[in-house]
Amino acid sequence: MHAIEMKDVAFSYGEGAFRLNKFNFTVEEGEFVAVLGHNGSGKSTLARLMNGILAADGGEIRVFDTLLTDDTLYDVRRQVGVVFQNPDNQTVASIVEDDIAFGAENVGTPREEIGRRIDFALGAVGMRDLRTAMVARLSGGQKQRVAIAGVLALKPRVMVLDESTAMLDPRGRREIMDVVLRLNREEKITVVLITHFMEEALLADRAVVMNRGEIVMEGTPADIFERHEELVTYNLALPRIGAICKRLQAGGMPVADTLDAEKLAEEIVRCVS
């Protein structure tokens, strides 16, 4: 089943030019898709369309066969959770568990069930021991994990991460990527990861590249990085390791393309011995 299906979607911020036009995009159930693009490529607009925070000017958006309309808005929002960029701007409460409860409270979940969902969400993001901590005292990565937990408390089937790692340090980024991978593999949550970190896209099943509101490249992450000349024209770059492969090849060392450090070392050893 399609988790998300966008058909001929159009959207503009009302300045005349369309941000998206005749935009088609589907995400399969259980899939982990990375959406790449430079700043201003339209990828964040995509995140806000998927659960109706922005309303499309035309076309259809379906979430598990439910057509997104004013009447189904909240059904769709319960299915599609969005985690945003700034770790400081997504929490409404000062205490971790109160914030996680917020979404579940909004949809009228009974008290005991909210308690269970907080347990589940905190477990899923690995923060059980910080249940009553002050949000203000957490690290950036922990704050983003609270944001993920807050979305999980609504039991969504799709999780959209809109550059949720952009403001984090490497440790925080790793924390988030670990959580996201686990949610996808173990909880079978469909993941749409919007990012400009090429390294993060490596973990996805499928990657799409956006430029000027259009999908311009699509395939497995390895496929995409294979076409590196094209990436450059969309103001993107290969992950560092891919770039090193290409440089070695250009220097006459026939290493196979790889995005894994151990593998590249093996390739180099193979070429020199």
Partner: peptide, 21 residues
Amino acid sequence: ELGDAMDARCYMGSKNRTKYK
């Protein structure tokens, strides 16, 4: 941004809302 995040978490005012604590 907070408004968006609250929307995304289905905030609809006090109607039918439950309270955890």
